[in-house]
C-alpha cells in the first residue's frame, strides 16, 4: 500500500477534480492507484470512500446555491443504486481488462457528446425572472440563477436516463468508481438538464451510490480503514474546494473541463486495460 501522505494528496486532488466536473474523483483515483501498484480489490473500496467524501463535502455549498435537483436525483438513483448493488455483488465475475476498455469508450463518448456542443442549451428567460428558483415541487423541472438572470429547465427522456443510471451503477459497483462520469453527461446531454444542475445533482447521487457500495464492501471485509482515512480526509478537503470553484465557473467552462477530464480518464483506462 502507498504511504498515507500520498494517499491523502491523491484523495484531495481527485475529489477536487471530481466535484468540479460532477464526475466523482474515483474514476481518476482508482486507475492511478492501480497504476501505482495497489491491488484492484483494495483500490475499488478506496475509490468509493473518495466518492463518498467528495459528495458529502460538496453538499452544503451546492444546497446553498440551490443547484441540486433532489427529485431528479432520487428518481434516477433508484436504478443507479440497484445497478451498484448488482455490480458490487458480481465484481469478481467480470474480467478487469474488459471492464476498463468499456469504461474508456464510455468516457471518451461522453466527452465528445459534451465537447462538440457550443454555447448554452438552457438560456435565461426574462419572463421567469420572478419564478421560484431551485426545483419545482412535483416535477422534474426547475430554475437556477445564472448571473443576474433565471434559467428554467425541465428534464427530458426519463426512461433513457434511468437506463443510463442503471449502467452507471453497475460500473460503480463493478469497478469501484462513482459513475458520475456517466451520470453528469447523461443528465446534461440526454436529459437536457443544465450542466451546473447536472453536476451538482450527480454529486448528490454518487454519494448514495457510494453508500450502497460501501455497505456491500464492508460486508465483504474489503475496507482498509487506515488507507481509507487518508483518502477520506483528503477527499473532504478536495470536495469543499471543488464545490467552491464550481460555483465561480461559467457552465461552458465546466463543460469544457468535464470533456478534457473525461478524455484523460478514457486514456488512463485504456492504458490500464
Amino acid at each position: 500500500m502507498l504511504s498515507l501522505p500520498v494517499l491523502f494528496l491523491l484523495g484531495l486532488a481527485t475529489a477536487l477534480i471530481g466535484t468540479l466536473g460532477g464526475i466523482g474523483g474515483a474514476v481518476i483515483l482508482v486507475p492511478v492507484l492501480v497504476l501505482l501498484g495497489v491491488d484492484p480489490k483494495l483500490a475499488a473500496p478506496l475509490g468509493i470512500l473518495s466518492v463518498a467524501a467528495g459528495s458529502l463535502a460538496a453538499g452544503p455549498r451546492q444546497l446553498d446555491e440551490g443547484v441540486v435537483h433532489h427529485r431528479l436525483g432520487v428518481t434516477l438513483e433508484i436504478t443507479g443504486s440497484a445497478g451498484a448493488l448488482i455490480g458490487a455483488l458480481l465484481s469478481d465475475a467480470v474480467p478487469g481488462a474488459l471492464l476498463a476498455r468499456a469504461l474508456a469508450v464510455v468516457a471518451v463518448a461522453a466527452a465528445l457528446a459534451g465537447g462538440r456542443r457550443k454555447g448554452l442549451r438552457n438560456r435565461p428567460q426574462p419572463e421567469f425572472a420572478s419564478e421560484r428558483l431551485g426545483e419545482w415541487p412535483g416535477t422534474l423541472g426547475g430554475a437556477y440563477r445564472l448571473g443576474d438572470e433565471v434559467v428554467p429547465y425541465h428534464a427530458q427522456r426519463l426512461p433513457t436516463g434511468l437506463a443510463a443510471m442503471l449502467g452507471a451503477g453497475l460500473v460503480s459497483g463493478l469497478a469501484g468508481v462513482g459513475g458520475g462520469f456517466i451520470k453528469t453527461p447523461t443528465m446534461s446531454e440526454v436529459m437536457h438538464v443544465p450542466v451546473k444542475v447536472a453536476a451538482a445533482t450527480s454529486t448528490f447521487t454518487v454519494g448514495i451510490t457510494a453508500a450502497t457500495s460501501l455497505i456491500v464492501f464492508a460486508g465483504q471485509g474489503r475496507l482498509d480503514f487506515r488507507a481509507g482515512s487518508a483518502v477520506v480526509v483528503g477527499g473532504l478537503i478536495g470536495g469543499v474546494g471543488g464545490s467552491l470553484l464550481q460555483q465561480r465557473l461559467h457552465p461552458a467552462h465546466v463543460r469544457t473541463f468535464l470533456s478534457v477530464a473525461l478524455v484523460v480518464i478514457g486514456i488512463i483506462l485504456f492504458v490500464r486495460a
Binding site: 459528495s55 458529502l56 448528490f204 454519494g207 464492508a218 477520506v232
Partner: peptide, 12 residues
C-alpha cells in the same frame, strides 16, 4: 475508522 465509514454511509 468504523465511525468514519458509518458517517459516510449514513449522511446521504
Amino acid at each position: 475508522g468504523i465511525l468514519m465509514v458509518a458517517m459516510l454511509i449514513g449522511a446521504p
